[in-house]
């Protein structure tokens, strides 16, 4: 019966072939968390135009969206508030931080500041240091060898975009209230998908579809494609989906030497019949033991 269920799961996941799992650097190894209870912390202060208490509720709801499916045991644990610094600390411990940047570094960083030469102005001056056209950015740091995610932080660009939490029509003028501009939950649910290792989907109805627009709220909840990804990547009671070539530390070192690029991140396809069947057979074998 369980085998039938698992095969059914794979087949159900099959029509939504659009989802993808992110990969680690040059390796093609899929990203996933090793743990199923993922901590997160809101920075203090949180930042952004939305009242802090309201924004925190929206953040909690956004995480709950990703743990509400019965086919996964992925859960999120809210931790204590943390300072407004993002990035990966090799010495750890690392916290998955959420925050809004309220001012653009262009406006606050003095000419010639050393942070301008090494991209550290965001933490130093608490400002948005990316292109002003970027709405949100999630940084997922992982091991290239295992694909294990080590840390993930979400930054929202409240310096250049207005985030809202209201329902209603799309805002059509500055300062208008009771309308939807860049919907906070819509944005966060998408970014949390990246936080758990999902890449963009080609399915226009998916939360993980590659684009968001002002006034949009349909990504506040998961689409069928997102649910399929969640169920396959983090199936209840089984290990996270892995794919791509396994590598020893020595092989990883060799890869680092070989691929001298600033990026080289390849985002491999993840969903589909073969992946689903692979997981199904894996689970079936485990459960048959």
């Amino acid at each position: 019966m369980r085998i039938v269920f698992v095969l059914l799961l794979a087949i159900v996941a099959t029509p939504a072939l659009a989802w993808k799992q992110s990969t680690a650097g040059d390796t093609g190894v899929c990203l996933a968390w090793g743990s199923r209870a993922l901590g997160w912390s809101a920075a203090s202060p949180l930042g952004g135009p939305v009242a802090e208490g309201v924004a925190l509720q929206v953040i909690r709801r956004s995480f709950e969206v990703w743990e509400s499916e019965g086919c996964t045991d992925l859960a999120f644990v809210e931790g204590p508030r943390v300072s407004r610094a993002v990035g990966f600390d090799a010495d750890g411990p690392n916290t998955n931080v959420l925050l809004s940047r309220d001012r653009d570094c262009e406006d606050v960083v003095p000419d010639g500041d050393p942070c301008l030469s090494n991209r550290s102005c965001a933490n130093k001056y608490d400002c948005w240091e990316f292109d002003p056209g970027v709405i949100a950015m999630t940084t997922v740091t992982s091991s290239n060898c295992s694909g294990r995610i080590l840390d993930a932080d979400i930054e929202l660009d409240a310096a250049n975009f207005r985030f809202t939490v209201d329902d209603g029509p799309r805002c059509d003028r500055e300062g208008q209230t009771g309308c939807v501009d860049m919907d906070l939950q819509n944005t966060l649910v998408h970014e949390i998908g990246h936080l758990i290792g999902l890449d963009h989907s080609d399915d226009r109805n998916a939360t993980m579809y590659r684009s968001a627009s002002a006034g949009e709220t349909n990504k506040r909840v998961l689409g069928q494609d997102d649910r399929a990804a969640l169920c396959v990547v983090y199936p209840t009671g089984a290990g996270a989906r892995s794919c791509g070539p396994a590598a020893t530390p020595a092989q990883c070192e060799a890869r680092r030497q070989r691929y001298r690029t600033t990026s080289g991140c390849n985002q491999a396809g993840g969903g589909g019949l073969l992946a689903g069947l692979g997981v199904a057979l894996f689970l079936a074998r485990r459960r048959a033991r």
């Binding site: 992110s22 680690a24 650097g25 040059d26 390796t27 990203l31 990966f88 090799a90 010495d91 990316f130 292109d131 056209g133 970027v134 709405i135 949100a136 950015m137 999630t138 940084t139 997922v140 740091t141 992982s142 091991s143 290239n144 060898c145 080590l150 970014e191 990246h194 963009h200 684009s211 968001a212 530390p249 990883c252 070192e253 890869r255 680092r256 991140c265």
Partner: peptide, 21 residues
């Protein structure tokens, strides 16, 4: 980082940022 390597934790870590612009 050197300390990390000395401990034998030889990680090649990658970070993916997703951007909408």
């Amino acid at each position: 980082l050197a300390g990390m390597v000395a401990l034998g934790v030889l990680l090649a870590a990658g970070a993916a940022h997703a951007s909408t612009m």
